[in-house]
């Protein structure tokens, strides 16, 4: 099926919107009334048709607008793309993974033809067509990881595995929830995750690392992470805090339903073949409280989750300023009915 791509923005006038089917396929992350930090990793296997889990890399109605937003962020700050020299094999692995996935799963929009190491890639939505030599960076207009990183939704970090840990040695990061690639590049797993409250003491990060070190080629995994954000903005980076941090002050009881968005990250991890590195993909989905309220089950659930949130997590997720307003706004959709476990809309 051919996708229709929205014309929309993720900054300034924020014309980003979800269609009715976009709302229905939203990866709502709360199966229960109470939220508890957990690693919640599952195999990244083929999900239901039309769901965000249908294919390894999900392309949706926001694809073109999101790639354009990524381009703007990279123009303003080229440091959002970084790759250490020993990651070149992993860069090509990334090219193979993304081109093969998109061409196989969205043949109306993307195609890949190989003649030995001469590859021809066509991206119709973005109007790109290039023939290059696989493995030879000089035949692409930029480094291979950046080239394809600009043509897929979401952020990507390439993790090198050595000394029994993982190092974030390359990344293209333009839609991060308040973390910085420039700050994290070259860091080990433990350095990177040091600040997560309640996670270190639960031993969660050590177990997750152990799991990831054993990640197998051909058996990718995924998890959902979430936060709440003001405005459907992708680039909520610490570098640009002055442009978005103040938005939290604009939230009032009348506009909270429009301004506050649930931001869900579909995080997936793939072992890469040539480099034995891991690609960590962080795909961001945004939905306003108002759109959530069109799904009664989700509105009730979100109300209960937020009402019972641990104060440390409210602070860590940057929700302190608008959290009480959000809970109040959601309360009017919650009749107290018992909800079965599960994230389904109906």
């Amino acid at each position: 099926m051919a996708l229709a791509f929205n014309e929309e923005t993720f900054r300034e006038d924020y014309t980003y919107r979800n269609s009715l089917s976009g709302i229905k396929r939203f990866p709502f992350p709360f199966p229960e009334d109470q939220y508890m930090y957990s690693v919640n990793i599952e195999p990244h296997t083929k999900g239901k048709q039309g769901s965000v889990f249908e294919f390894p890399l999900d392309v949706d109605e926001h694809y073109v607008a999101e790639c354009n937003d990524k381009k703007i962020t990279l123009e303003q700050d080229p440091g959002r793309y970084q790759a250490l020299p020993h990651m070149m094999d992993a860069q090509w692995d990334f090219v193979e993974l993304t081109m093969e996935s998109l061409a196989r799963d969205y043949p109306k929009h993307f195609s890949l033809h190989k003649k030995g190491s001469s590859w021809t890639w066509e991206n119709k939505p973005l109007g790109i067509k290039d023939t290059f030599t696989f493995g030879d960076s000089s035949t692409l207009p930029m480094e291979p990881f950046e080239y394809m990183g600009r043509q897929v939704q979401g952020d990507f970090v390439l993790l090198d595995q050595r000394d029994e840990t993982l190092y974030a040695d390359a990344g293209i990061v333009t839609s991060q929830a308040d973390w910085s690639l420039a700050f994290n590049v070259g860091m080990s797993w433990r350095e990177w995750h040091g600040p997560v409250p309640r996670a270190t003491e639960l031993g969660v990060m050590d177990r997750a690392l152990k799991f990831m070190l054993n990640l197998q080629l051909g058996s990718p995994v995924r998890r959902l992470n979430w936060t709440m954000t003001v405005n459907p903005r992708l680039d909520t980076s610490p570098e640009n805090y002055p442009y978005w941090g103040g938005d939290r002050n604009a939230v009032n009881p009348d506009n909270v339903g429009d301004l506050v968005n649930l931001r869900v990250e579909l995080q997936s991890l793939f072992r890469l073949p040539r480099s034995n590195a891991i690609v960590f993909s962080i795909r961001c989905y945004l939905i306003s409280l108002k759109d959530i309220a069109t799904i009664p089950r989700w509105a009730k659930r979100l109300h209960r989750v937020q009402k019972s949130m641990h104060p440390d997590l409210i602070e860590y997720k940057g929700m302190t300023k608008f959290h009480p307003m959000m809970v109040d706004w959601l309360a009017k959709f919650d009749d107290g009915a018992i909800l079965e476990v599960g994230t389904q809309p109906e």
């Binding site: 990651m87 595995q161 050595r162 197998q216 080629l217 034995n276």
Partner: peptide
């Protein structure tokens, strides 16, 4: 057979 697994990889650096 399984997919390839590497427990004896070269140190890229």
């Amino acid at each position: 057979i399984t997919y390839p697994v590497n427990l004896f990889s070269l140190a890229k650096k």
